[in-house]
Design a protein around this nucleic acid. Structure first.
Lengths: 259, 259
DNA sequence: GCGGCGTGTTGGCCATTGAAAGACAAAGGA
DNA sequence: TCCTTTGTCTTTCAATGGCCAACACGCCGC
């Protein structure tokens, strides 16, 4: 294997995994740790990675002050691309609803360039992020604080959502399948999403391509409930065609290209 | 795991939870407390967190929430005493409402020994603190997220409070005076407090003695609305007598003495 | 064959970590 | 209020493992 090939593979892993260890790379590429260090040195001189004790981290992600939660997340590049694409649908002054979840959080970060937004969300993380990074008016639904992730659910949350009508709701989904429709894993969230769908003129679902064809156990509703689906380039063209036949606008977010 | 990954993870938790304990981190990240302390030291040198005894707090919130920070440090001993005294009024299994503010936050900390509580609050900080330190069921009122301090106010918050009836409400106050009654500085909070008073069987006001005789501009209501006042030893005995003549139970918290 | 290049190996050095001991701070009881 | 107890912080030390520099080896083209 050529040195340059190996370095590309290393960069690829650093990008997808955010960080990498020298021993892991040496192991999987069947070269010595010293070779890996020399490769990382070369990549660092090109400004592509940053070396740290024991390995290296993605230089680009490291530059920004993004939340760790995002970096750690699998398929973060896809989600970031989806978040950026979704933010393009938002105009200054819009009133939108934002869901719980990592994709939604990345989306909120992409909203920092917008002005005078009104955002309603059940996610504490999203609310605090928006408060820090933007001038948005943030309305938090009430509800019972969940254990696993800081968001609010239950009767109060649903009642709060019903008080509003938003121009666009941005929803996450655990699964998108042609037969079962939109599904998810947490039934508490599902109920809230149903309400969110009802109180929005336009429904946009954010789901990376790994969710396509997946049937999670709690059903949110049929596919026709969504007006727009934003996903990444991993979407099968046949799936895309079928979705478009149902009248759903499918936007494929291009992952930002790396030099 | 790389040291830098661990530090990012720590930072993420500090940001979302506002504060964190060394032992909790050591436990969940499976490293020794010494390693965590070194990580926190590194993060502190980058200006990202501020170390405190037992853990660390979010530096950004400290800097941004200047007002809150000041209130946090001022008369903290008295507030802690008041919080502890107030916690004595709470039984396992109680359903209570908790207000916004530093005193309320200290009170929530003192609730860690209680079990199976149900707490309703408009304060994000209080909610996250309770989620972290106790097994309480936490219900957050909805509402508009405020700029200066993370709590929720407005129509939604009031509507949410009206959905409940609690055995005891714990209220903060900016001023307690015999003529103007209970007053405060933020009119948004005042409206919410009025509602909180209405939906509680017992009303307990937490106010350190510096608030006595103070008339802040927004009126919450007459003194007779409160059943119990918890304050510190700085309370004038004449004031205490007059309050007791009004049928208010006055509890004086003994501040732990500092060497 | 010879020099350049990339790679592996080796030994010394340094960074990170965890354990232990003593100092210090906080909480609770007499 | 004082003292005890408990928990936390700091310092020090040893061990582990990663880093670096130097050198040897093999491959390739000339």
């Amino acid at each position: 294997m050529l040195a340059i090939e190996r370095q590309r593979m290393i960069l690829d892993r650093v990008v997808t995994e955010s960080s990498i260890r020298v021993v892991d790379l040496a192991d999987s590429l069947h070269v010595s740790g010293e070779t890996i260090r020399r490769d990382l040195l070369a990549l660092e001189q090109q400004g592509l990675v940053r070396r740290v004790h024991g390995g290296a981290v993605d230089a680009r992600q490291d530059a920004g002050d993004r939340l760790f939660q995002e970096r750690e997340t699998i398929r973060i590049e896809e989600k970031r691309a989806i978040g950026l694409r979704a933010a393009e649908l938002v105009q200054d002054g819009d009133i939108i609803a934002v869901d719980v979840g990592t994709t939604a959080l990345v989306f909120c970060e992409a909203l920092r360039s917008k002005r005078r937004l009104t955002v309603i969300t059940p996610s504490i993380k999203a609310a605090l992020l928006l408060r820090q990074t933007s001038d948005a008016r943030v309305i938090v639904t009430g509800g019972e604080l969940q254990e696993d992730e800081p968001y609010l659910a239950g009767y109060l949350a649903e009642a709060a959502l019903r008080q509003f009508h938003v121009t666009r709701a941005f929803i996450s989904a655990g699964g998108i399948a042609l037969d079962t429709g939109i599904t998810d894993y947490h039934d508490g969230e599902v109920q809230m999403r149903k309400v969110m769908l009802q109180c929005a003129s336009q429904v946009t679902v954010l789901a990376d391509s790994s969710k396509m064809g997946v049937r999670a156990f709690a059903v949110v509703g049929p596919l026709r409930l969504m007006d727009t689906l934003i996903t990444d380039a991993g979407l099968h063209s046949s799936m895309q065609q079928k979705l478009e036949q149902l009248g759903i606008e499918v936007l494929v977010a291009e992952a930002p290209v790396r030099k």
